[in-house]
Amino acid sequence: MSAASVTVGDVTGRIILLTTTHRIAPGLLSWPAWEALRGADRVLCADAAHPQVPYLREAGVAVETAEPDARELVDACAEGATVVVVAAADGEPRLTDGLARLAGSGRTEMPSLELLPGSYDLPGARLIDVVQTMDRIRRECPWSGGQTGEGLVKYGLEEAYELVEAIESGDREAVREELGDVLLQVVFHARIAEEDPDEPYSVDDVAGTLVEKLVRRHPHVFGDAVAETPADVKAHWLREKAAEKSRTSVTEGVPLAQPALSLVAKLAGRARTAGLDVRAGPADGLGGELLALALRAEARGVDPETALRAAARTYREAIHAAEAAAAAPPRQAAEGTAEPERDA
């Protein structure tokens, strides 16, 4: 429903259902919301612990802790009064259902019924729900409560690979789900880190560090540097990263635990960006041959890991086809070539 008023029947007063979101700091309400609150004859809220109530009272709004039913609320408006109901998180379904029944009966003179959003979620606000949900799970779930960062490593790897598979399959619903699973790993690790007795940090610290890094490594966006091509951007990024880490080699920071083809591509890309002329040396068995192929792919702008994975998927389909052929029943003899019946 939009912010516009929804009027039912003859106007003998006003009932305003004021909705807010817990994802916005309490007290940050729209101007129409404050006007409605200050101009109301009564302001009701069923939840004494509603996060908005202390701020409304601090602003001089008299908020009554009350939970009238639909009939009582309509009667309160009988003399033309305006009543604002500060809704709970679920939107007060019991009250709205009761008002709908009264309005539909045709026997009750109804006041004006208005739905007024007092605040709206900002982009990314649902991340607050993720953090709050994870916090409760960590406290109340026997399995989650006992996990450590080290114990979650295998799940992080699994989720990353599942995300890659979803992206490469082109299944957008699967990508959205797998992104959520990767996000869960981030939030889970950050929640565990809050409990460290010596060096605790929170998901806000993680996000703050990320923002600072993004700003610092994009001087062409947030500063005066100029980057006109993707190559310029990459050069900025690598320079800033090298300065931050005080690295003396382009190989520093390249994780050796990643898949071998990705490792070769990463090392080759670092060397090429640095302008280094590196010879792989003579091939040493199959490893040397694979290295040479990976270097050729990277030099052509092809990620060898992605290329081999695509070939592996094609090979998998070929295996499925071979399995289906092997499991198929023998073909019937062609018509006209069947064995003739024998005389009894």
Rank of each mutant, 00 (worst) to 15 (best):
S119V: 02
R136W: 08
F188G: 08
E140G: 00
I137A: 12
I128H: 13
I192Y: 09
R136V: 07
V86K: 04
I128Y: 07
M110D: 00
E173W: 10
V175P: 08
L115Q: 06
A88G: 15
E173D: 14
F188I: 02
A160N: 10
V85G: 00
E173S: 14
A193K: 12
M134Y: 03
R126L: 13
V164Y: 04
L179A: 08
E79K: 15
G106P: 11
L183C: 12
E173C: 09
S144R: 13
E79R: 14
C141S: 15
S112K: 09
L116G: 00
S119W: 04
E178Q: 14
H189A: 14
R101Y: 05
Y120T: 09
V186E: 03
L102F: 10
R191K: 15
R107N: 07
D97W: 09
V130L: 15
R172Y: 09
I167S: 01
R136F: 09
E150Y: 12
D90C: 07
P111G: 07
G98W: 01
E158W: 08
R139K: 13
G98E: 03
A190W: 01
G180F: 05
M110R: 03
S119C: 12
L184G: 07
T96M: 04
G146V: 00
E79P: 00
V153F: 10
Y155P: 02
R126F: 03
R136G: 02
A174I: 00
E140F: 10
D135L: 06
D135V: 02
L127Y: 11
L127V: 08
V84H: 05
A88S: 15
G180C: 06
T108Y: 00
S119Q: 05
D90K: 05
G80Q: 06
P111D: 03
L183I: 11
E173A: 13
D135R: 15
D121Y: 05
G151P: 13
L113C: 00
E195Q: 15
G180Y: 08
P93V: 01
T133E: 12
R176W: 05
